[in-house]
């Protein structure tokens, strides 16, 4: 196997008409990796934060997500109960262990039954927190971790995501920067999610609800409201 590796690297260097990189260019490239240069960032996201929140909502809705704004996290269980009712969804939830969603006042709504952990096949509705919202395209950034299992994002029919408004940023670059500052290492999975799953593989006609969730509902918690 290492022979294939050597052979490929040797061919690359031969074709580039040089040997292994010298120290100086190597350091330059290392530096570039550690201090990523920015490319052009679309202007549309580079606006004041309140406008970023509006842009996020507009773009997420265009991608067929539904978005709701609440002024306090305590109001989430009631809003979820209402959402489930409106969409005729079962009131059994699989909730991420993350305290931001697991420790909400769910017990005030005894009609909803709750399990905490990773999703399984029979789970129809999940609730999990997002790490960031990217206004430019209405995209959620969701990280895997002990408190945020990835299956919650894909197995259930409906995925409800909680996003605190201060975590909405203008562009991808800002979200990456926050991730670099937040995490010592990259989580196993970073999911960028824009709307519910879909396919256009039959006659190029868009159908919502392919293998992932059919509904994506985003609850923005915005204390400034």
């Amino acid at each position: 196997m290492s022979t294939a590796r050597d052979a490929i690297l040797t061919t690359l260097r031969r074709q580039l008409k040089r040997g292994s990189l010298a120290d100086e260019p190597r350091q330059r490239l290392q530096h570039r990796l550690q201090h990523p240069p920015r490319h052009t960032i679309p202007q549309r996201g580079l606006v004041p934060h309140s406008e970023q929140v509006n842009l996020f909502i507009q773009m997420a809705e265009r991608a067929d997500a539904s978005v709701q704004r609440l002024s306090t996290a305590a109001a989430i269980p009631a809003a979820v109960a209402d959402y489930l009712h409106r969409h005729n969804l079962p009131s059994e939830l699989i909730v991420a262990p993350d305290p931001s969603v697991a420790e909400l006042p769910w017990s005030e709504h005894p009609s909803m039954r709750l399990r905490i952990g990773a999703a399984q096949d029979q789970d129809k509705v999940s609730v999990s927190p997002a790490f960031a919202g990217i206004a430019e395209t209405g995209t959620l950034m969701v990280l895997s971790g002990a408190h945020t299992p990835t299956t919650l994002n894909f197995l259930p029919d409906a995925h409800i995501v909680v996003l605190p408004a201060p975590q909405i940023v203008g562009c991808y670059e800002e979200a990456w920067q926050r991730l670099r500052e937040h995490a010592v290492a990259m989580p196993r999975t970073v999911n960028l999610i824009t709307g519910p799953s879909r396919s256009a593989d039959i006659e190029q006609t868009l159908q919502l609800g392919a293998h992932g969730p059919i509904h994506l509902h985003i609850v923005i918690v915005d204390p400034s409201m």
Binding site: R188, N191, T194
Partner: peptide, 14 residues
């Protein structure tokens, strides 16, 4: 504007 799922995978589960 963006694909529905853009997924970054780094190593096995922690």
């Amino acid at each position: 504007e963006a694909s529905v799922y853009t997924t970054f995978s780094s190593g096995p589960r922690r």
